Computed example of a mutant assay.
Amino acid sequence: MTKKHLITCSVIVVMVIISALNIFSTTPVMPAAKHIVLVPANLLFSKPAEAEEAAYNFADEALPLDDKKVDFKLKKSIAKHRYKTVQSNVLHAKADKVFPIIEPILRAYGIPEDFKYVPLVESGLRGGTSPKGARGVWQFMPGTARTYGLRVNRRVDERLNLRKSTIAACKYIKELYQEFNSWTLAAAAYNNGSIKLERAINKQNEDNYFRMSLNRETGSYVYKLIAMKEIITNPEKYGYKNFYSYNHLHQLPSFLVAYN
């Protein structure tokens, strides 16, 4: 009996030893690891492209949109020129006709292309006569027109000649830039006159248009130019649908431009 018991115990011990050897020699099966994609921090916390603030500027002079007053005035001006407010494509249509004439003249005189929006704000490209006597798409007063080479008399009024009046405007704008050393201030002076703007600069000891306190018309003038630039450049963004323009022809590939 004792002998049988010893044999049984020996067999059990051997089996335990074999089992232990099998356990430690077997490679454990681990659960499949999940595929982890590492995202750079700058992408993880960055805004999507469509949420980025638009880089608004006039003649490459940026607006300080961190200033709440500036941001409000710009948004207000853009809202006034949306399709819901204007209900017309007439400005786009007229711009398509005159921009091809105005743009090369601006380039020839070294004037930033953004000044082509001045006629849109000044006259809506109507070329009529204001209550004060300004006339043509560039809204020249008779005396200023004559100063910059335009004939204005009872029989001839070259303010109504698009090419000649644009050349005169370029001469005037270039002179204003030389005086104020800023395209933004040159635009403001075009609207209000250099003498009045210079007085405001000296009185306020400030030469940044966006920080100055000016009369209502001049104080909103550059904002209107930037708003017009936005509306004409991105018509669909502001509700002007089904509109094909010369302005967008420049954005097409060259092989498509050739067939338009």
Rank of each mutant, 00 (worst) to 15 (best):
T147E: 14
Q139I: 05
N161C: 01
G124I: 08
E61Q: 14
I18D: 03
N260E: 11
V156Q: 08
V118A: 11
A134V: 02
E198V: 01
S88W: 04
S182V: 00
I18L: 14
M1K: 13
V98E: 14
D114W: 01
A227N: 05
A33R: 14
G136V: 07
E61V: 10
V13Q: 07
M15A: 15
A108V: 02
A49W: 09
Y172K: 10
L252D: 06
A51L: 12
L120I: 15
R155S: 05
I201N: 11
D67P: 04
P28I: 08
N57Q: 15
N234G: 02
K73W: 13
G110V: 07
D157C: 03
I195G: 06
G133W: 08
I167P: 01
S245V: 01
S194P: 09
L160H: 06
S165T: 03
P131S: 14
K132E: 12
F24R: 13
G110L: 08
R135L: 10
Y209R: 02
R159D: 07
K132N: 13
A189P: 09
R159P: 03
F24C: 13
L214A: 12
R154K: 10
Q87I: 13
L6D: 12
L74N: 11
F115H: 11
Y109L: 12
D207C: 12
P104Y: 15
A108E: 15
Y244P: 00
N153M: 07
I17K: 02
Y56F: 15
